[in-house]
C-alpha cells in the first residue's frame, strides 16, 4: 500500500486510456483518467450512458487491461501482475457487485456467500463461519438456508454483497447495484453500503446513474466521453434536525392581512 499524507491510497490511476476495436470500429472508451481513491472512501462514478463508467470499473477490478497508463490497487500496479497473480488479486482484494446478482440458484444463501472462499481452497467449516459473519453484516444472518428464488430482489442483492465481502477485500466495486431494485430496497442497499464504509472502513467505488444513490457517497466523479469532467467532495453529514433546518423552505410564509 502507498500512503499519501495520512491516508492510505486504495487505488491510483494515472493517464489511463482504453481503446476498443481498430480503425473504423475504434472507440476510445477512456481518454486519460487520473484518479486516486483513499482507503475507507466511498466514491460514486456518474455520467451519461457510454461515457466509460463500466470500462473504468473493469480496469480497476482487473477484469480488463488499460491500453496505456497505470492502474494500481493497494499499491500494486496491475500491469506488473501475471494472470495467476491477477486472479488472486480479484479473488482476495476486490469484491464485485453488479446489477444482476449472479447467485447460484441451487445453492443456499450461505453456500453462495462461502463459494469464493471454497474456490480459493479454504476449508468448508472455516468458509461457512466467515460466510455466516458476512451474512450477519448484511442483515441476513437469520436466513442462511434460503435459496435465492425464495428471497426478494433486495435480499438477493444483499447476499451478493455478502459474497463480495466474504474474502474481506480492500476494495468493493459496484456497477449499478440498485439497477434492478425498487426504490425502497434500493435505499436499503445504499444504506448498507454506507454503513460498510462508516462502520467497517470499507472502500467502495460505485457506478450509478441515480442521483439519490450517488448522494450517499463521499465523492462524486463525473465522466463524459471517457474523461473526468467534474469532481465533487461532499461535506460531512450534520445531525438530523440541523439538516432540516438547513434545507430552506420551512419557515411559515407571511399571511396576507
Amino acid at each position: 500500500m502507498t500512503t499519501t499524507g495520512t491516508r492510505t491510497t486504495a487505488i491510483a490511476l494515472h493517464g489511463v486510456h482504453k481503446v476498443f476495436g481498430e480503425s473504423s470500429t475504434r472507440v476510445e472508451a477512456l481518454a486519460g483518467i487520473d484518479l486516486d481513491v483513499g482507503a475507507g472512501e466511498f466514491v460514486a462514478i456518474m455520467g451519461p450512458s457510454g461515457s466509460g463508467k463500466s470500462t473504468l470499473l473493469h480496469l480497476i477490478g482487473g477484469l480488463d487491461v488499460a491500453t496505456s497508463g497505470t492502474v494500481a490497487v493497494g499499491g500494486e500496479d496491475l500491469a506488473s501482475l501475471n494472470d495467476d497473480q491477477l486472479t488472486m488479486l480479484r479473488r482476495r482484494k476486490i469484491g464485485f457487485v453488479f446489477q444482476a446478482y449472479n447467485l447460484v440458484s441451487v445453492l443456499t444463501a450461505i453456500e453462495n456467500v462461502a463459494l469464493p472462499l471454497i474456490i480459493d481452497g479454504i476449508a468448508e467449516s472455516r468458509a461457512n463461519e466467515r460466510a455466516g459473519r458476512a451474512l450477519d453484516l448484511v442483515g441476513l444472518g437469520s436466513r442462511p438456508d434460503h435459496r435465492p428464488g425464495e428471497m426478494s430482489g433486495g435480499e438477493q442483492q444483499r447476499i451478493a454483497i455478502a459474497r463480495s465481502l466474504v474474502a474481506e477485500p480492500v476494495l468493493l466495486l459496484a456497477d449499478e447495484p440498485t439497477g434492478n431494485l425498487d426504490s425502497v430496497t434500493g435505499d436499503q442497499t445504499m444504506r448498507l453500503l454506507r454503513r460498510l464504509v462508516d462502520e467497517e472502513g470499507q472502500t467502495v467505488i460505485m457506478v450509478t446513474h441515480d442521483a439519490r444513490d450517488a448522494a450517499m457517497a463521499d465523492r462524486i466523479v463525473r465522466l463524459r466521453d471517457g474523461r473526468i469532467v467534474e469532481e465533487q467532495t461532499l461535506p460531512p453529514v450534520k445531525s438530523g434536525a440541523d439538516v432540516l433546518a438547513s434545507l430552506e423552505g420551512l419557515d411559515a410564509p407571511e399571511d396576507a392581512p
Binding site: D187, A214, M216, L234, P235, L244, L247
Partner: peptide, 13 residues
Amino acid sequence: AFERLHQATQARA
C-alpha cells in the same frame, strides 16, 4: 443540489 441531497438522504436513513 448534491450537497443538500447528500445531507437529506443520510438524515433520512
